[in-house]
Design a protein around this nucleic acid. Structure first.
Length: 806
RNA sequence: GCGACCGUGGCGGAAUUGGCAGACGCGCCAGCCUUAGGAGCUGGUGGGGCAACCCGUGGGGGUUCGAGUCCCUCCGGUCGCACCA
């Protein structure tokens, strides 16, 4: 800081920010009227997992961007509800608690307290009356209620399934939590296990989830990720008969190539395999099946993709050609997708081609390729070797073949999705117990709603083991209960639910946190939902956002809510990286904001993060450059103080006025579209203009203070008070720009000859073409290039450019 | 392999969507003020050239009066999915 004497107090962020945070809290500045808001606006951001390390720069970047938007809406006259909470259940907390030998129930409150402190310090416009934590029994009571809604609706079911098992975390993982065959949390290779698991029937909603994407105002990147994840493909089921044996149904997206199907492949665990093994192949097949089962998921899915397989010794009839073709099993065919069986068309599928080559199976080309080598997978082409269908295009031929086979009962059009049902059970401790009681006589029985919540007991030994049974089973007083239906001895479900169930409905809870007797109040929900704007990271594009949409659809169908899309408008922010790579504890490059906030103040740091690059793209964190924002705020500070000095405000200047209205227009538009970096640049330009023109009247500075308020809220409050206002700056209205004033004055237009810039010309705005051209032709610099040649064509763009073609 | 995105000064990034490339900021250079400068202020800052001018948005080609922006192609990078039939 300068020690040169100044005539006004220096900007001291620390004291000033503490003052305004205290005042917001006393005056309830951030607590909107929830029951009768004039213009409700629900500004939601993705709630954090309260890690022991505290809020990091990535969180703060996301929250600052969302907070600026909320504050901007507030200045536009909305009643903005901006709640904050904690997603505190889950394996992450539990593993950390295990590593330091504490119970997560003791650890989490400390982490939350630390997060709350940091969130208050950075100056978010949070309504702390409505804070929530998913680990609070008053919250998870309703998570369990939600489970029961699905259970009663027949959308929750239990089945023994091959699941992803993480041997380190000792739990089941959802497909979404397996990254390249590894556990997304600890990076351990995932194994296959067969366990009884609870599933939600999200696949019943696949088409609806897909169709609604068109109606949502979402970042296109997020839509693309969801569409890809749902993975719709159209095709047909074809039936292959076996002599004296079972019929084999395959799914294919290319029924047009059925004449080229020269063998069938079943997944090794396909239930029909037993019926199809020829005696002489029994040993080989059993051996192969054992071999595949011993492989973990990594080896099967991501390992080297050399094809393996074994012939069953039996044959099926190709429904199109009538030929007898061999049946194989191979692990490149997955039981979870389609029917677990395929027709192999080696000429037109890369995988089938590799397999056929390796095992010397016949390859028959059925699509013309223009000399392109096989396998040719293109759908652009015409059929050959396909009987009556020769010469038809792939698309048309495919339709005709399906129709033809359908008449004989061997084909059905079929849509297939990659989306799987959502496995929601976890054999762990730190989650909401699934509210089911098993009874010898009645089977699985829902815990009656009056008995909710099923509280998670505090137990000393919550370490998971290899049995695949939750630690809760070791807690006898909790485990054994009476059956709610018949009163016999029963036992509780010991699995807890997936964290993503907690977060699939938290937006419904926020406006209703004070109601103990209902998950979400109907009136509040009607007033505040769906969410006005949701801002969060694309890391949740397929998990959280898909599950939340699914849960909303279910609740809508059951009559609990009035909408089926919870987040009509969603914006994905970018990622803050450090030195080009993602911040992570293992890399040791996590940046914690506390020290920066202490050194520079929250306002400077907030604005600095937003100035780093486009909010929706993120950027590389580096500390050089923070000083630029501080200099800007110092200049605004000085201007505001000078505006108070009598006689030091040298009135209006026309160029300043124009710049002011242009700035209001640009900052408003850029803030609305989350282009915060350019909004800040525009405010800097205005400050530069004020300083150059020696202009600093109240009328010139006050709109600037309001515009800077969403970005630097404490700073703006202080200056607003200084300028003589009693109310919070957030009670004010965003300034209006006057289009006429913004556009007034002269413009400088570019003058080109043959597309090259040769001169510039200042003319009154809106000057007619003929007058402009006359002046252009009189310009010496232009004359030189025209040089007596005939002007063939004149291009004129109003107020921008003239181009003479000679 | 499939899908999405990106490539602009020393650096982060702008460019009203086909119309003056490099706004704004960092850094750097020079000057002023200072005992001093890691403070402040003023000016400069894409490359080449004394200049007139020329060249410049990853490379090459195209469309256009005009291309960072549109099309084709190649190179490089990021993210997501991935033996999904």
């Amino acid at each position: 800081m300068s020690d040169v004497p100044t005539h006004h107090p220096l900007y001291d962020p620390a004291a000033l920010e503490a003052k305004w945070q205290a005042r917001w809290s006393e005056r309830r500045t951030n607590e909107p009227e929830l029951d009768r808001p004039a213009r409700p606006f629900y500004n939601l951001m993705m709630f954090p997992y309260p890690s022991a390390e505290g809020l990091h720069v990535g969180n703060m970047f996301a929250f600052t961007g969302a907070d600026i938007y909320g504050r901007f809406k507030r200045l536009q006259g909305y009643d903005v509800f901006e709640p904050m909470g904690f997603d505190a259940f889950g394996i992450h907390s539990e593993n950390y608690a295990l590593s330091i030998g504490t119970n997560p129930a003791q650890l989490i409150p400390k982490n939350i307290a630390n997060f709350r402190r940091q969130l208050k310090r950075f100056g978010g416009m949070f309504d702390w009356r409505h804070e929530l934590s998913t680990t609070d029994p008053a919250y998870y009571k309703w998570t369990q209620w939600l489970f029961l809604q699905l259970f009663h609706a027949g959308l929750a079911y239990k089945k023994r399934a091959a699941v992803n098992w993480c041997p380190k975390d000792k739990t089941v993982l959802a497909n979404e939590q397996v990254i390249n065959g590894r556990c997304e949390r600890c990076d351990t290779p995932v194994e296959q296990r067969f366990l009884d698991q609870w599933f939600f029937r999200i696949t019943d909603f696949a088409q609806r989830l897909l169709d609604n994407l068109d109606k949502l105002d979402w970042s296109s990147s997020t839509v693309a990720l969801q569409r890809n994840w749902i993975g719709r493909s159209e095709g047909a089921e074809l039936v292959f008969e076996t002599p004296g044996g079972p019929k084999i149904t395959v799914f294919t997206t290319r029924p047009d190539t059925v004449f080229g199907a020269t063998y069938l492949v079943l997944a090794p665990e396909h239930p029909l395999v037993t019926d199809l093994i020829a005696v002489e192949q029994r040993a080989a097949v059993k051996g192969y099946q054992r071999e595949v089962q011993a492989k973990d998921v990594v080896a099967r899915r991501v390992g080297d993709k050399t094809k393996t397989g074994v012939f069953l010794g039996s044959y099926a009839r190709n429904p199109a050609t009538g030929e007898s073709i061999p049946i194989w099993i191979a692990d490149y065919v997955l039981m979870e997708y389609g029917t677990g069986a395929i027709m192999a068309v080696p000429a037109h599928d890369k995988r089938d081609f590799e397999f056929a080559t390796q095992f010397e199976l016949p390859i028959r080309q059925v699509v013309k390729t223009d000399g392109e080598p096989l396998p040719s997978v293109s759908e652009e082409g015409t059929l050959m070797n396909s009987g009556a269908f020769d010469g038809a295009t792939c698309r048309e031929g495919g339709r005709k073949i399906v129709a033809w086979l359908a008449q004989r009962g061997t084909a059905t059009p079929r849509v297939q999705y990659r989306l799987h049902d959502w496995c929601i059970s976890r054999q762990r401790y730190w989650g909401p117990p699934i509210p089911i009681i098993y009874c010898e006589r009645c089977g699985p029985v829902a815990v009656p709603e009056k008995d909710l919540p099923v509280e998670l007991p505090f137990i000393e030994d919550f370490r998971p083991d290899d049995t695949g049974i939750s630690p809760l089973a070791r807690h006898k007083e909790w485990y054994f209960v009476k059956c709610p239906d018949c009163g016999d001895q029963g036992r509780r479900e010991t699995d807890v639910s997936d964290t993503f169930l907690d977060s699939a409905w938290y937006h419904l809870r926020y406006p209703s946190t004070e109601f103990a007797d209902r998950p979400f109040d109907p009136a509040r929900t009607k007033t505040w939902l769906p969410v006005s704007t949701y801002i969060g990271g694309n890391e949740h594009a397929v998990l959280h956002l898909l599950y939340s949409r699914f849960v909303s659809m279910v609740l809508k169908d059951l009559g609990h809510i009035h909408f089926e899309e919870p987040f009509p408008k969603l914006r994905a922010h970018g990622l803050i990286v450090k030195d080009g790579s993602k911040m992570s504890k293992s890399r040791g490059n996590v940046v914690v904001p506390d020290a920066y906030i202490q050194q520079w103040g929250a306002d400077t740091f907030r604005m600095y993060l937003m100035f780093l690059g486009p909010f929706q793209e993120g950027g590389d964190f580096r500390e050089t450059g923070i000083v630029g924002i501080r200099r800007f705020l110092d200049k605004v500070w000085t201007l505001a103080h000078e505006a108070l000095t009598p006689g030091a405000s040298p009135g209006k200047s026309e160029s300043v006025e124009r710049k002011l209205h242009q700035t209001i227009r640009k900052v408003g538009a850029d803030t609305e579209s989350l282009n915060y970096n350019t909004a800040i640049a525009a405010m800097m330009e205005y400050v530069n203009e004020l300083r150059e023109q020696g202009a600093r009247s109240k009328e010139q500075v006050e709109p600037l203070v309001i515009m800077v308020a969403p970005y630097a809220p404490h700073f703006a409050e202080e200056l607003w008070e200084l300028l003589g206002h009693k109310r919070s700056v957030f009670e004010e209205q965003w300034p209006r720009h006057d289009e006429g004033l913004a556009a007034a004055g002269d413009v400088e237009i570019a003058v080109q000859v043959n597309g090259k810039l040769r001169s510039r010309l200042t003319v009154p705005r809106g000057m007619p073409q003929d007058d402009v051209v006359a002046r252009v032709l009189a310009d010496e610099a232009v004359k030189k290039f025209v040089d007596g040649q005939k002007v063939k064509k004149v291009i004129y763009v109003q107020d921008r450019l003239v181009n003479l073609v000679v």
